[in-house]
Amino acid sequence: MIFIRKTEKIRSGKLDEFNRIFHTHEYREYVKNGAKLIGRWVNDKEDEILTIWEYKSKEHYDNFEIVKDTSKEIQEATGLTGDISYELLSSTEPYPSAYHPPKHIMSVSGYITNKKGKVLLVRNFHRSDTMEMPGGQVEEVETLEEAIHREILEETGVKVSIIGITGIYQNVTSGVTCIVFRGEHLSGEVRAAENETSEVIFAELTLENIDHYITRPQFKSRALDAMEANYLPYEAFRARPYELISRFDVKKEYS
């Protein structure tokens, strides 16, 4: 595999429009043709975006550039930029000259119900073929509990209370492990997140209609497990000296 760093100068005031096209068109075009997004960063002045893509080989990258250039939407995005540069990253030098992907990534998602028993679902721009439970990647120094609260609030606009963990799911292809929480809606009206979620709803999710909402099997299995939850213990702590941050013990709470 190889890593290509793409640096784009963004025309003044065009960042939001460029991000919208990236999430709705450019990202799909790259992934459809076998590229993998490693990371994407915007500078403080919001006039430059650095993106790192992974390709299977130099030949894959060269052939993909031909495919990419034929996309009408990506041509539209190119009109919002100035200079664009590409750099093949070395695997022997430290970042930023090179990129070394993390071996494992932790993510969280939440099966959240309201007082009517309806389930909170989102539709992401880059996975528009399915709805799914809200969630995302755990950031450095965050606990899992902090991450699920933050991700749900960012993606949907609502605050929740967490009951427990219903499952752990590992994507061995991408190296992502997802922890699924079950919780309840506390406050806030649902709303979509700009450039991230195109639709946010509370749906009456059942065994009979789940395929109407959740079309990808990996997301469906997580929701089905959470419907009939067998909760797992979870504890967050610091060491030296030992400090308990939080713990879910559902058996004691509901006995």
Rank of each mutant, 00 (worst) to 15 (best):
Phe3Asn: 12
Glu8Gln: 14
Arg11Ser: 11
Asp16Thr: 11
Asn19Tyr: 05
His23Arg: 11
His25Ile: 01
Lys32Ala: 14
Lys32Gln: 14
Gly34Asp: 03
Gly34Cys: 05
Asn43Phe: 10
Asn43Lys: 04
Lys45Met: 10
Asp47Ile: 03
Glu48Asp: 15
Leu50Trp: 09
Lys56Gly: 13
Ser57Cys: 08
Lys58Arg: 12
Ile66Val: 13
Ile66Phe: 09
Lys68Glu: 12
Ile74Val: 13
Glu76Arg: 07
Gly82Ser: 12
Asp83Ala: 12
Ile84Phe: 04
Glu87Cys: 00
Ser97His: 14
Ser97Ala: 13
Lys116His: 12
Gly117Ser: 03
Lys118Thr: 14
Val119His: 07
Leu120Glu: 10
Leu121Arg: 01
Leu121Gln: 00
Leu121Ile: 10
Ser128His: 03
Asp129Ala: 04
Pro134Val: 02
Gln137Leu: 11
Glu140Phe: 07
Glu140Lys: 06
Thr143Met: 01
Glu145Gly: 00
Glu155Arg: 01
Gly157Met: 01
Tyr169Val: 02
Val172Glu: 13
Val172Cys: 02
Val172Arg: 07
Gly175Arg: 01
Phe181Tyr: 09
Glu184Asn: 13
Glu184Cys: 04
Ser187Tyr: 11
Glu189Gly: 07
Arg191Phe: 07
Ser198Phe: 03
Val200Glu: 12
Phe202Met: 04
Glu204Leu: 08
Ile210His: 02
His212Asn: 14
Thr215Gly: 06
Arg216Gln: 14
Gln218Ala: 07
Lys220Arg: 14
Leu224Trp: 05
Met227Leu: 12
Glu228Asp: 15
Ala229Val: 02
Leu232Asn: 02
Ala236Ile: 01
Ala239Trp: 09
Arg240Tyr: 11
Pro241Arg: 07
Asp249Tyr: 11
Lys252Tyr: 07
Glu253Gly: 04
